[in-house]
Design a protein around this nucleic acid. Structure first.
Lengths: 237, 237
DNA sequence: TAGATTGTTAATCGATTAACAATC
DNA sequence: TAGATTGTTAATCGATTAACAATC
């Protein structure tokens, strides 16, 4: 069958379908701010569940987090979970849906490069495991660290990285090195076969476009804090 | 003079002033995304300065950071620094203006509460000093840490916090405790006289509205990473 | 039933991007 | 001069907020 002849029909068909229907298909990506709020909702929901509360309204969640109720409702709507008027949403249902949406229902494995202060902190962060991320081991060029363990995670020399990524099929690389070597480390991670990089160094990375990059930046938070603070001080002066 | 009689006049006057003029007065706050990008610009500019480059175009900065040139131009415009067509901007001028805007030209002092893995990492992070933040000391309830030093910063028992904040006039409190005690610590910081709180615990804090709060959230970064990754994997499947 | 809360559609707001004349 | 780059105004895009009927 000829694509050119079939195309106009298809387009016409799509036009007839309501916008809502199109949106609900799986290719639609959620708004980034919504995704960032998901962990907040999850945390509250899990606490509620632990307290034996099995139903919660968007209004309540909003109040706890200091958000607007309408925003919470909109966010929760993207999960496909529906609530009951006057009652609210099922806590376990929401938890499952949020985890599913985030891909936190099944664990991804990661290697961490750069076992300095920040790297060690991340190795010791218990929350990751709960959120579907398992850091298997760390890598560092410092020969004194070789073979040691930090928070129960083994430290390997960087020379072993490529081989281990390939053999274990690790998908995520976490960079906590000084910025000067971050690009180099990123290149190594990419050629080793990692599919996503979580970069905690301040260095802006150039990566092949098929590699997922999440840039973490402590300074940007500090910038916002400083700005707010200097405004507040100006006001009170 | 009576406020009610004077008010209508004032309003009328404001209406006559163009939007642009109103924006340029000092009360206008910069867009949050712009503020978050400022540290990126600063970093690049400082590197250029070190390399002896004293002039740079928005186009160049954009290329280095993977941003759109127009966005960089818009951001830089908010600093008030003007560039020369075909030439670009003065690197030192931009550095000064950005630091000034962020309040990074003069140092603020901070105490950190919670000398665990993450707290220690922050104590050892050299970048803060360069960005106008000096962490003076840390506090922890763990008696084993009392009197010790981490990265050259003294650890005090939490009981000394209030007194020291007051005596030293410390403005910023950094919370790196487990979420369960975060609210309690925040309350203590506030009653001690701190004016801003940088919260690295996942707990949502309730604070008096005059206190500046900057919420840092590792999970939200992980959420975005997970989402991007699971989409990428879906696509390649 | 009455009223709180949902889900949906429309309005508003704010940031990004486009377009383009000015200019070094 | 010619052309890259600026600064500005307008258009677009995307997220938040408002409004409100449906409903448990």
């Amino acid at each position: 069958m000829n694509l050119i002849t079939i195309l106009p029909k298809k387009i016409k068909k799509y036009r007839l379908i309501s916008r809502k229907t199109v949106m609900s298909n799986s290719t639609a990506t959620l708004p980034l701010p919504t995704i960032r709020r998901f962990p907040l909702y999850l945390q509250i929901l899990e606490q509620l569940k632990q307290e034996g509360v099995y139903t919660v309204s968007a209004t309540e969640i909003a109040k706890t987090l200091g958000l607007k109720a309408i925003q919470v409702r909109k966010d929760l709507a993207t999960t496909g979970v529906t609530g009951k008027p006057k009652v609210g949403f099922s806590v376990p249902n929401l938890i499952n849906a949020l985890k599913e949406a985030l891909g936190w229902s099944n664990t991804s494995e990661a290697f961490l490069v750069g076992a300095g202060a920040l790297g060690s902190a991340l190795l010791g962060f218990a929350g990751f495991q709960k959120r579907g991320l398992k850091i298997l081991a760390a890598f560092d060029t410092n020969p004194h660290l070789e073979g040691k363990e930090i928070h129960g995670k083994r430290i390997f020399p960087l020379t072993k990285l490529e081989n281990l990524v390939q053999r274990m099929g690790v998908q995520i690389g976490i960079i906590t090195t000084p910025p000067e070597v971050a690009q180099e480390v990123a290149n190594l991670l990419v050629t080793s076969g990692v599919q996503a990089i979580w970069n905690f160094s301040a260095a802006p990375l150039k990566l092949p476009k098929e590699i997922v990059l999440q840039q973490e930046d402590l300074s940007s938070g500090l910038a916002v804090l400083s700005m707010k603070l200097s405004e507040a001080l100006k006001k009170n002066a």
